[in-house]
Computed example of a mutant assay.
Amino acid sequence: MMNLIAWLLRIALFAVFAVFASLNTQPVTLHYYLDQSIELPLSVALLIFFALGTVITAIFVRCRCHSNQ
């Protein structure tokens, strides 16, 4: 039963994120150093930065757990 509830919650969350992504397709320009820039849809830029934050957090947590042992 809990497995079913977990899957229903995942499906609902995916639906919310899919609707958010489809409503936010406006292009955003990201400027880098040396006058370099890239133009992406807003939802893609948010997804990239969310993934980067997740990876950086996982690296810090892993390093911290290994330093305590």
Rank of each mutant, 00 (worst) to 15 (best):
V28Y: 00
A6N: 15
N3T: 10
L8E: 07
I56G: 03
L13H: 07
I5P: 02
F60L: 14
F49S: 03
Y33E: 11
L47M: 10
R62A: 07
L52D: 02
E39M: 04
L34H: 10
M1R: 08
S37W: 03
L52T: 01
R62W: 10
I59S: 03
L46K: 02
L4N: 14
A58V: 05
R62K: 14
R10A: 14
L46R: 01
T25A: 06
C65R: 15
A58C: 07
T29C: 01
Y33N: 14
L30R: 07
V16D: 03
Y32I: 14
Q36S: 09
F20M: 05
Q36H: 13
L52Y: 08
T54C: 08
A15W: 02
P41R: 01
F60V: 15
I5V: 15
L4W: 13
A6V: 13
L40F: 05
C65Q: 15
I56Q: 07
Y32Q: 11
R10L: 14
N3R: 09
I11Q: 08
L34E: 14
S37P: 01
N24D: 04
I56N: 06
T29Y: 01
N24T: 05
R10W: 06
A15C: 04
M1F: 15
A18C: 08
I38R: 07
I5C: 15
V61P: 01
T29D: 03
V16G: 03
C65H: 13
L40Y: 01
Q69M: 12
H66M: 14
L9Q: 06
V19E: 12
L13W: 10
C63Y: 06
A21T: 05
A58M: 04
H66Q: 12
V28D: 01
V44E: 00
A18H: 08
I11P: 04
Q36D: 10
S22G: 10
C65W: 14
T54H: 08
L13I: 10
F49G: 02
S22L: 14
H31P: 00
V44S: 00
I48V: 11
T54R: 09
T57C: 11
Y33G: 06
L4F: 14
Q26P: 00
I48C: 11
I11V: 12
R10Y: 07
T57I: 13
